[in-house]
């Protein structure tokens, strides 16, 4: 249990640092900065106090915002996916994610992929709607969600496969 808390704190700090110092300066094709800190929500233990989880994610978004001058847009997006994570999990993994024996590593690749992709999609939709903040620019929002989403997804998948290899 203690190890779990410690692991999550380390993960929190490292992901924030990696996000602000590396990925916020990446500028693929001039403007794409993948958001890899979403992996925190992917890795966070499932059977945890939900209120605490939402609170932690609020703090995560807040710390990213503090560094990237984006008002509270990361905060809003991250809190939203934290709230909807259990809904997404029920959708992706079916009812059996509520069982005690459920583990993310036991699920199929397709399920893991869908789970991550849905988290990123919802996050980016909230984020760019807030950033652009006008309904007349729906096409711009869609364009940004798709391009940023693809970049975030690819990088998150790479990271996840990198750090899960020792378990296999």
């Amino acid at each position: 249990m203690n190890r779990g808390i410690f692991l999550n704190i380390v993960r929190f700090v490292l992901l924030v640092l990696v996000q602000i110092l590396v990925f916020n300066r990446l500028n693929f094709f001039g403007y794409i900065n993948p958001m890899v800190y979403i992996m925190f929500l992917y890795w966070y233990p499932i059977k945890q106090n939900r209120a605490l989880f939402i609170g932690v994610c609020f703090l995560l978004g807040l710390s990213i915002d503090l560094f990237s001058d984006t008002m509270a847009m990361h905060t809003a997006a991250t809190t939203t996916i934290a709230y909807f994570r259990s809904t997404v999990m029920r959708f992706v993994f079916g009812i059996n994610y509520e069982f005690q024996s459920f583990k993310l590593s036991n699920t199929t690749r397709v399920q893991q992929f869908t789970f991550l992709a849905l988290l990123i999609l919802v996050h980016h939709m909230v984020f760019f709607s807030l950033e652009i903040f006008s309904f007349s620019n729906v096409m711009l929002i869609v364009k940004k969600v798709l391009s940023f989403g693809a970049a975030s997804l690819i990088l998150c998948l790479l990271f996840i496969s990198l750090f899960s290899s020792n378990k296999a």
Binding site: I54, T75, A76
Partner: peptide, 11 residues
């Protein structure tokens, strides 16, 4: 809780 945090972020 979610609504509260979102209101803060939106504000």
């Amino acid at each position: 809780l979610y609504i509260l945090l979102m209101i803060i972020a939106f504000a």
